[in-house]
């Protein structure tokens, strides 16, 4: 039984032209909230059951083991390192070429990775978005500008690049694979399509050439974690931050 508990009404006075005459009339807008919880009828429950069973089975699939809790932290933390390492690993495996660095918008990671079995379900909670991975060709000049943008935002998860952030939010001592960035060089970086499409402080990436990897962020992490499991190794966690916050 449906029951409306809250109804907000808005009345709007409108003038509408009808032929050559004008009519002044009102329309009431009602906001109905269905409060009584609705239980799916048995036919619908029956219809949903095979889907529910398949998803439960999929989410409960164990793909690896974490020896300890892994947290996001400032600038990405150990969890940011793990995810960007997975991106870089997948990009290099899929392309068979040198990919210089991986970067990720921090909001792509939610919560933390809990100690114990890692399941598809826990990975889905960690990385809820189906962000696709793309390789972007970027000049050293633009890459430096992008890193400055990330530094001003407090530092984003990153792999393959090290730098300092000053109290003013500037990036200094930037190194890519332990070499200074050369403005005229072209670098290959792996990012998400969300970033490549120029969203949130990634405008600089929008017009650059890209190659799609035909895989998403979560799948990359799954493959990366499984690579340890398949070798009977615990998941390696790098706790060393590639970003050094300099306090003068």
């Amino acid at each position: 039984m449906l029951k409306a508990i809250s109804i907000s009404s808005f009345t709007c006075l409108c003038i509408a032209c009808i032929g050559h005459s004008q009519t002044v009339s009102t329309v009431q807008f009602q906001y109905h909230s269905i409060s009584s919880s609705i239980q799916a009828d048995s036919a619908t429950q029956q219809w949903l059951k095979p889907y529910n069973d398949s998803i439960e089975k999929y989410l409960n699939t164990t793909i690896g083991f974490a020896l300890e809790n892994v947290y996001k932290g400032k600038g990405g933390g150990a969890l940011g390192n793990l995810v960007t390492q997975a991106m870089l690993h997948q990009a290099q495996t899929k392309t068979g070429t040198t990919i210089h660095a991986a970067m990720l918008h921090p909001a792509s990671i939610k919560g933390y990775l809990a100690q114990g079995n890692i399941t598809i379900g826990s990975l889905t909670q960690l990385l809820p978005y189906n962000n696709q991975l793309v390789i972007v060709s970027i000049s050293g000049l633009h890459l430096t500008q992008f890193i400055q943008q990330m530094a001003a935002d407090g530092g984003w998860p990153i792999c393959g690049i090290k730098y300092n952030i000053t109290p003013q939010g500037n990036a200094t001592n930037i190194y890519i694979n332990n070499e200074p960035i050369i403005p005229g060089n072209t670098y290959q970086i792996v990012v998400t399509d969300y970033m490549k499409n120029g969203n949130y402080k990634c405008e600089i990436l929008k017009l650059l050439p890209q190659v799609s990897l035909n895989t998403n962020l979560r799948e990359s992490c799954k493959v990366y974690i499984e690579s340890f499991t398949n070798n009977h190794e615990p998941l390696a966690i790098n706790k060393v931050s590639p970003i050094n916050y300099v306090y003068e």
Binding site: S33, S35, S37, I38, Q39
Partner: peptide, 19 residues
């Protein structure tokens, strides 16, 4: 040939968990 908007409703849907 008249079309009048009589009213609008927005249902916020909640589903009861299986007992």
């Amino acid at each position: 040939m008249n079309k009048n908007l009589l009213r609008t409703k927005n249902f916020l849907l909640k589903e009861k968990k299986n007992q």
